[in-house]
């Protein structure tokens, strides 16, 4: 399931809500707003997204994960709007019979989401003003690693 929303989410409640007849393993990833980047303090960030394409890309990523691993259930929540340090941005939960599928698919989902879901972060950097976060080549490499391992 995919949810794109302004409001916060409850990690424990979402994990408890995962459903399937044969769940033996739950894996999760939660992404938070950092309070600094190197020497620079970050006051807050605003996440912009492309309504419509965001849901479409996330649904495609979920379908790809379900094709690659035997998942009992799967949830991706991504927030948008202005968020302050410590606030939750993104949640990925995967449920499977065994840990390897749960852990691998969770890592796959967050790696692919970072390079293909249309979100952009605008950071508030105090006296330096606002700055759009630049994409990192390390994120591309993390996503490409999964392309190379496609079964």
């Amino acid at each position: 399931m995919i949810r794109v929303q302004r409001e916060d989410f409850d990690v424990g409640a979402e994990m408890a809500a995962m459903s399937g007849n044969n769940i033996g393993a739950l894996a999760s990833f939660t992404g938070l707003v950092r309070g600094s980047d190197g020497d620079a303090d970050i006051g807050a960030m605003t996440l912009e997204h492309y309504p419509g394409m965001t849901e479409k890309k996330l649904a495609e990523i979920e379908a790809e994960a379900r094709e690659r691993w035997p998942l009992e259930d799967c949830l991706v929540i991504h927030r948008y709007g202005r968020l302050e340090p410590g606030e939750r941005i993104v949640l990925v939960i995967t449920a499977s019979s065994h840990r390897q599928a749960a852990l691998e698919s969770c890592a796959f989902l967050i790696d692919w989401l970072k390079t293909s879901a249309p979100f952009w972060k605008l950071e508030e950097r105090g006296a330096d003003g606002e700055e759009w976060v630049e994409a990192r080549s390390s994120d591309d490499q993390a996503a490409e690693k999964w392309a190379a391992t496609k079964k």
Binding site: Y50, V90, W132
Partner: peptide
Amino acid sequence: VAFFPPVTGG
């Protein structure tokens, strides 16, 4: 048709 920078979500 949409134009945007490389994505930075997650």
